[in-house]
Nucleic acid binder design. Structure first.
Length: 261
DNA sequence: ATGGTGGAAGGTCCA
């Protein structure tokens, strides 16, 4: 089974690109973030035409929004209202294998890396703390967590560790919280199981950098985590880097992970 | 040090 995750930055605008992503990766499940479409306008028929009969979505007008597209049936489970904002940043399901799949869109956090001066950064930190607490309280099970976590935890997850230490996405406070959230449920960082931590690995390149991939100033903001019992089932990981160079790209590229089930 | 681009809107806000 291949599970892909992608911050699509508008599902309706990028439906043709989604078709190309599906053709390139042939995923069984696609988790999307930033669908930017209210539920009543979700393009169910277009998604079914791509081969995904089973669709879960939680969207709102203008911002945020998450969805799970699947070829096989999904059993919806406990969505929750993170930070009491009702803002469509999480959706979850049980896969046919029995594994739980959680799709997250963590707040980007604004520009100023200070929770006192910047409410958006405070929200981001609170969200990551809540994520840690929620899974810490759960019994171990076969679980997969994917999504745009908007944090690049390792030095080689950014183009310049030193230059990004004060840039939201790579500041010590959010990195520490993300690592604490991983430890709270023994999450395994799947991409780093396949690409060693001393090698650069990015999934996002800013729209504000016109010369992609010239200077390759990327960050690894998109992640796939699994609980330890799923580690033996891991069969591979792919970052579809080329998608950043396609026509009308998202600023994030799709990431796919293969499982032996 | 600054501003750079893109999306949803049809103001600006968000990233």
């Amino acid at each position: 089974m291949r599970i892909a995750t992608w911050n699509i930055n508008s599902l309706r605008l990028r439906m043709p690109t989604l078709q190309n992503v599906v053709a390139a990766l042939k995923p069984d499940v696609v988790c999307l973030q930033e669908t930017k479409v209210p539920d009543e306008l979700f393009p169910v028929d277009d998604v079914r035409a791509l081969g995904f009969e089973h669709i879960l979505f939680a969207g709102m007008k203008g911002y945020n929004g998450v969805a799970i597209l699947s070829k096989a049936p999904l059993t919806p489970i406990d969505r929750r209202d993170w930070c009491e904002k009702g803002d469509c940043r999480h959706i979850a399901a049980i896969l046919p294998s029995g594994a739980e799949l959680h799709n997250f869109y963590i707040p980007a956090g604004g520009d100023i890396p200070d929770p006192v001066l910047n409410d958006k950064f405070a929200h981001k930190l609170r969200f990551v703390d809540e994520l840690a607490d929620w899974f810490r309280g759960k019994a171990q099970a076969e679980r997969i967590l994917v999504g745009d976590l908007n944090i690049a935890p390792l030095e080689e997850d950014v183009w310049s560790h030193k230059q990004l230490l004060k840039v939201v996405s790579h500041t010590p406070v959010e990195v520490e919280k993300l690592i604490a959230a991983m430890k709270a449920h023994d999450w395994v960082d799947v991409l780093r199981e396949f690409v060693p931590p001393d090698q650069k690995l990015y999934t996002w390149w800013s729209y504000r950098n016109r010369i992609w991939p010239g200077n390759d100033r990327g960050r690894r903001l998109d992640h796939v985590w699994v609980t330890p019992s799923l580690r033996p089932a891991l069969a591979g990981a792919t970052v579809l880097r080329e998608a950043r160079g396609w026509d009308k790209p998202s600023d994030h590229v799709p990431v796919a992970v293969d499982f032996n089930f």
